[in-house]
Every structure is written in C-alpha cells, then in structure tokens.
Design a protein around this nucleic acid. Structure first.
Length: 476
RNA sequence: CGGGACGUGGCGCAGUCUGGCUAGCGCACCUGAAUGGGGUUCAGGGGGUCGGAGGUUCAAAUCCUCUCGUCCCGACCA
C-alpha cells in the first residue's frame, strides 16, 4: 500500500511537489510565491552552505553582509542591469508611517549596493583583489513560482570580487565556476555541463556569464549555478577606480557568482524516485536511521539498548537517529524515512539480537545487507561511499543517454518534443536564430562548452557556417 | 494582464444541476486495547455553518448579484 507520492511517470510536477511535502522540506506560505523551508529542508541547506563556505574561504574569500534595502537610484546606474531587474523588483515606498523621499528596492541581487561600498574601500592596487561573499535572501517578483526552483524570495550566496586586471577577473570567474562544478559533482552527486551563456541568456550587466547545467529526470535542464565576469561595467556605473603601481587611475574589474536553494530542487529531481527523496550521503543531514523491530510487549528495552550500543559506535563520524516511537509500526517508519531520503536504514529485531547482527537497507537500491554487530561502523561508512558514487554514476548515465547530437532541424524538433534532454547541435551565433528556435521549440541554449573540439558544420536553424556545437534544452 | 477551473473541519473531496432531514466521507488528530521484519487492526471520541457581503424565499452550501482569494495554462525568470 502506497500513498502520498504521485509516480514520476504519471505527473512529474506533482511528483516533485509530493516529494517536497512528503519529506517535509518545505511548505507553502500564506504569501503568494513564498515558501517556508522546514527543518528538514533547512538542515540540507545548512549542509550545502557548510561545504560551499569552506570552499569559498579556501579560495580566499571573506563573508560580509550588506543591507536588504537598496536605494532605487542605485539600480538605475547600470543600464543593462536596470532593464534586467526593474520588472521583478519589490519596492518599499513607505516607512514609519510616512512616504519615503526615495523608494527603497528590496535586493534582487546586491551588485549595486556592494559596488557603492567598494568605491569607498578601494583606493589603491594594494586593496585588490577584494574578495567578498555574502549569504542572504533576495527577492524577485516572479510570475510563476515553484517550490525551491523559483520562489519570490529565495536564499543564496552571492560572491562579489574586485580585481586590478581583466585577466584576474576572468580567472576568478572561472575559478568559482569550477568550485560550483566540484560542489555539484562531488557533494550533490549531480553531473553538470559547464560553459558560457549566450548573450541573450547572460546576467544583466555582465560581460559574459558561465553556468553549470544539470539534467533533470524529466529531460529538462536546470541552471544550478552561475558565475559572471562583469568586466568594468559596475566600476564605471559606480565610479570605482584604483591607483596602479605607476600612479595611474584605473577602473576596477568585477565578478559575481551565485548558487541558491534551487540546488535543493536539482537534488530532488536528479536523485529522487517514486518512493520520495534520495539524498547523497555527503549532503544528507541524517545519514543513518535505526528502526527497532518489536515483537509483542516484552523485550523492547533489550532491543533498544542493543541498537543504542551499535549506534554509539558511529558517533562523531556518521549522523544517525534511533526512531524508537512506539505508536508507529516498522513498515510505517520505513516509508517515512524513505520519503525523507535517508541513505541507510538499519533494522534490528529479536532475530538480529540473537545472531549479533543488524539489517541495513540502502535507500538508492533497496538492497538489504546483514551486518555483524562489530562491523557496522566500517561497513556503513563503506556503503555511504558506494551510495554517493552510485548516485553520481546513475545520474551521469541518465544524462549521457539523454544527450543527443543533432544535425538537422527536423530531428532537433523531434528530440525536443519527444525524448527531451540535451541537444548538442550547431549554432551560427546569431541571436536571431536562437530566438527563432526558442519560439518554435521552447528549447534554449543552455551553454556553450568552454573548449569544444573544432567541429565544422552548419547552424541547425539557418544553415550558415558554424564552428562549434552548443547545448540546447528545454529548461526550468 | 489574457484563457480555464475552484473555494465545504488540518488536508483531500461528496453534496450545488433539481433549495427542505441533525452537512457527509476518506486521511490526519485524541483515548484505549491488541499488533509490530514494508504505510496494522478494532472500539470510542473531538473538530466545520459551507471564502466574504448583499439579495430572492416559509426555507439557501445549493438560486441571483457583487467581491475576495487560490490553482492550472500562456507572456518573464537564480
């Protein structure tokens, strides 16, 4: 008997929502487009934060915090930036019961206020590079929202750096793209394609944008992190200059990069199954759950102390919990913890106690393994690693199966509307073609690979010369 | 903003067309007992005035008018 979760094959969107509700990651809030992140979801976010934060620090960045409210005029300083963000900004017009002299925008991203501050802090080349990150919430007034994927308010991290040269800025942009890629693959077990965005898809105000793109189980792509080379656009807009070694005033070069709670959506849609959430062990807030199997009224205490003893041997290295609730049956608990995505479940009942073993069950494969009492710790550690690896391989296999090299527009349209996935095809570089393709097929350019082998061909849409292939897909 | 649908205990719904019994069901919740290796069973129990306002009527969840809200589809997007 199954209830609660819609099958993926039946309705992927509903499945996605069911998984989130079932795993208690989040819930709908009274405010349209906003969500409440519940403890299960938030602890997952904290786990992500801790790894990312460590990587940011290792690459020389420091955390800081800038205000939520930004003078409206700041947003207007960089032409392309205004155009990109103005429509989705929430604006505060009143405060303290009075109309404000200048409206304040709730940050949709913090480039403007940060660069207003950078102007004060950067005088000389000795002040560079300036490497700042902030963890915060941002607000974007979206038309259509979905839990974790697109909500009006979301949590993220935004890095903002200032450099003396264009080369350094570019290097930084790619370095952070690489951090994101490492995080996605090694921690979230999500294979990603990295590359550059087309001009149409790039960040408003950037010279160019790099992205990591993941493929979800329904064949749609999801942008999971972006890194922007902002060139001197914001330095110009906010007049941020420094004096170089030769005494000359120069404009500063900038980057910014971000990863958001959307990553949780990516996690769900990459690894989840019809039973619910499946978490990669490295990000799972809870890695092992112990479930005592009681028989009759007697002996509950013995089973529990048997479990407690074994569980205690994991302490410090592996996060676990003992679910000793009496009011639920084992089967009920199995389902509940499966929905929550816990990587390993360990059952122990009278039979196990007698044999001096426990039964471990893998969330990813459902495989049951008998573990002798004294080998639990080593074995669990080993299986967690295996799960981590398998999840990545499985996802990678899926992406490979769903990446199609296409040479003509007919096939292109067929694949987009049929199988979906990534389509690796020639594009001439003309935004006009890109637009046409989007209108006709709903597919967009997800990324232009950084180093593609020279592969001469013709644009799928217009037939003009093309030297490289790009990845197309329908996207979230 | 355009097209469609829907608002009835916490959640999901029936009842509305064809006004009329005490507004019903499933899940969840509470109490008790048995059960316990894949959502256990039985018994008992609490909780709604039908999104809101107005109107028609002897009588409105049901008909009419207005209003508010939500969801889905499209134009925008980490």
């Amino acid at each position: 008997m199954k209830k609660g979760i819609t099958k993926r094959s039946e309705d992927f969107s509903r499945w996605y929502t069911d998984v989130i509700i079932g795993a208690r990651l989040a819930d709908y809030s009274p405010v349209k487009g906003c969500m409440v992140i519940r403890p299960n979801g938030y602890s997952l976010w904290e786990k992500m934060q801790s790894y990312l934060d460590k990587m940011f620090k290792e690459t020389g960045h420091e955390n800081a915090y800038f205000p939520l409210l930004i003078p409206e005029s700041f947003l207007e300083k960089e032409a392309e930036h205004v155009e990109g963000f103005a429509p989705e900004c929430a604006v505060v017009t009143h405060g303290g019961g009075k109309k404000l002299e200048e409206p304040l925008v709730i940050r949709p991203t913090s480039e403007t206020i940060i660069w207003a501050m950078f102007k004060k802090w950067i005088m000389s080349y000795r002040d560079l590079p300036l490497l700042i990150n902030q963890w915060c919430n941002v607000l974007r007034w979206e038309m259509r929202t979905r839990l974790f994927l697109r909500t009006t308010e979301f949590l993220w991290q935004e890095g903002h750096t200032a450099h003396a040269t264009a080369e350094e800025a570019e290097e930084e942009t790619l370095r952070m793209l690489n951090v994101y890629q490492t995080f996605a693959q090694d921690y979230a077990a999500i294979p990603v394609l990295s590359g550059r965005k087309s001009d149409r898809e790039k960040f408003a105000g950037a010279l160019h944008t790099y992205t990591i793109e993941a493929l979800m189980q329904d064949g749609k792509a999801l942008q999971a992190g972006t890194s922007h080379n902002l060139g001197q656009n914001f330095a110009k807009a906010f007049d941020v200059t420094f004096q170089d070694q030769h005494g000359k005033q120069q404009l500063v070069y900038a980057t910014s990069w971000g990863m958001s709670t959307r990553m949780i959506g990516a996690l769900i849609m990459t690894h989840g199954d019809d039973q619910g959430l499946v978490l990669p062990p490295r990000l799972a807030p809870l890695q092992v759950v112990f479930i005592p199997i009681f028989k009759g009224k007697e002996g509950h205490g013995e089973i529990l102390s048997y479990i407690e003893k074994i569980a205690a041997s994991l302490d410090g290295e592996i996060s676990y919990r003992v679910d000793a609730r009496e009011e639920y049956t084992p089967g009920w608990k199995f389902n509940e913890w499966e929905q929550a995505g816990v990587p390993i479940r360990i059952e122990a009942g009278p039979r196990d106690l007698q044999r001096g073993q426990v039964v471990a069950v893998r969330r990813d494969t459902g495989e049951k393994i008998n573990l002798p009492e004294d080998s639990v710790k080593d074995k669990v550690r080993e299986v967690l690693d295996e799960i981590q690896t398998l999840l990545y391989r499985r996802a990678l296999g899926f992406r490979e199966e769903n990446t199609t090299k296409v040479n003509d527009y007919g096939t292109f349209q067929e694949v987009v509307s049929g199988q979906g996935g990534f389509i690796y095809a020639h594009w001439c570089g003309d935004p006009e073609c890109e637009d046409q393709i989007k209108q006709e097929t709903m597919a967009t350019i997800r990324c232009i690979p950084l180093e593609s082998e020279v592969d001469r061909g013709v644009c799928v849409r217009c037939g003009n010369q093309s030297d490289e292939r790009v990845y197309f897909a329908k996207a979230y």
